[in-house]
Design a protein around this nucleic acid. Sequence first.
DNA 1: GTTGCAAAAAATATCGATAAAAATTACTTC
DNA 2: GAAGTAATTTTTATCGATATTTTTTGCAAC
Lengths: 238, 238
Amino acid sequence: MTPKTQADRAHLQLREKILSGELAPGMKLRVEHLRDMLEIGASPLREALSRLTSEGLVVLEGQRGFRVAPISLDELKDVSRIRKLLEGEAVRIAIQNGDEAWEAAIVSAFYRLEKAETRMAEGEADFTEWEKRNREFHDAIVSAANSPWLQRLRSLVYDQHERYRRLSKRQMGRLRDVQREHREILDAVLARDVEAAVEASCRHIDNTVTGLVKLYADREGVDSGAGADGETASLVKA
Amino acid sequence: MTPKTQADRAHLQLREKILSGELAPGMKLRVEHLRDMLEIGASPLREALSRLTSEGLVVLEGQRGFRVAPISLDELKDVSRIRKLLEGEAVRIAIQNGDEAWEAAIVSAFYRLEKAETRMAEGEADFTEWEKRNREFHDAIVSAANSPWLQRLRSLVYDQHERYRRLSKRQMGRLRDVQREHREILDAVLARDVEAAVEASCRHIDNTVTGLVKLYADREGVDSGAGADGETASLVKA
DNA sequence: GTTGCAAAAAATATCGATAAAAATTACTTC
DNA sequence: GAAGTAATTTTTATCGATATTTTTTGCAAC
């Protein structure tokens, strides 16, 4: 899983910095600056930025360089709607195809996620680990959907969604609910109840979104992470 | 619509060559060779290849260079299934949102498509034009689905599907049926009958697929376009 | 005849520098 | 004083060349 090429490394590092908000939405990405930051040449850096552009985390305007993809309330709603569509379908297929090993992997991922949640509630762990395990749990469920393209698109949209989630650190007031939602999904999946599982998944996404929307509506903007220079885009006007 | 940068140009040219089959599936893409072919430097070329990789038209293996994405019967089925999912949802939303100008644009695109079909049946035009207008017709329908992400993903999958279609030039034996199918979609859309339109769209895709599957099953492989060097991947074993 | 290793060849990935374009600044003119 | 224009500066996009890595070729040993 270790990056084999310089471009891979830059891609991973930039992706993490964007998802975490260290590179704030709308921020200008100056090549020279990033070169120093990542200690890398111009060619692999541009290659990494190109990939991120295809993934929708970076935008490239004509001959005016790269910048971090802006965020907006509209896009959050859009991303969520599409994520429901893809995740729902993935769950549907996965339940039809999954075997016992698949069930076991889900249970295992759920266990690790719960642990992380507990640890976080006690202030022992950070969000990064929770995000990682949350992704692993959801990945485990849809892993049985033997549809490479669905996986691929779902992963793309999941990244977008994760970004919005991570941009608001205060999300975790609702931790208890999230835990319950995850259990609902788990139960429905293990019971092989397709419709219940799809519904629970969509509800899970909806809840996250309404939480975020409320949060954003309250403060009319996002706190930019550790963005050094470059303007920070407001969520509502972006 | 004219490419502003060298990387853009290379991206467009390569994309067209891959979709048309001039660069055959599985074929090795030697940088030096492409440099001469497109008269371009290494950096923008790699940038273009990176984008195509993100779009799934090119694959990049570790440190062993690029090659044209292989094709397979399984992937054709996968792409079609996902395309039905996305196209169906897009039609659903578009019908809800579309206004009169939208309807007019669809009728116009349909008219041009029919013209092209007639002209092609008389041997006056080539597939390239038909493909273009076919895409424009389907684009016109979903253009009212104000969901950037759905549009984006749909476009990605459409490209994949188009590639499989164009790799088999003999597809057009079923031209009459295709024409009728397009009319069915048109009628259902204009009548604002969501379910009928979605069903017609999915049936349309299904028909294309079964046609292609039959074709591929018959000859157990694909005729590679004008692929110069590099091995051609067989469809079934790839 | 095949297997293993070493050297050569080829191709990829990367760097440093240059050319082209956009943004900024300063200046002139009304 | 504002607006338009020309020159400067900054930044991007591109090129040519180099260093790694992979693949091929050749040779020797079993």
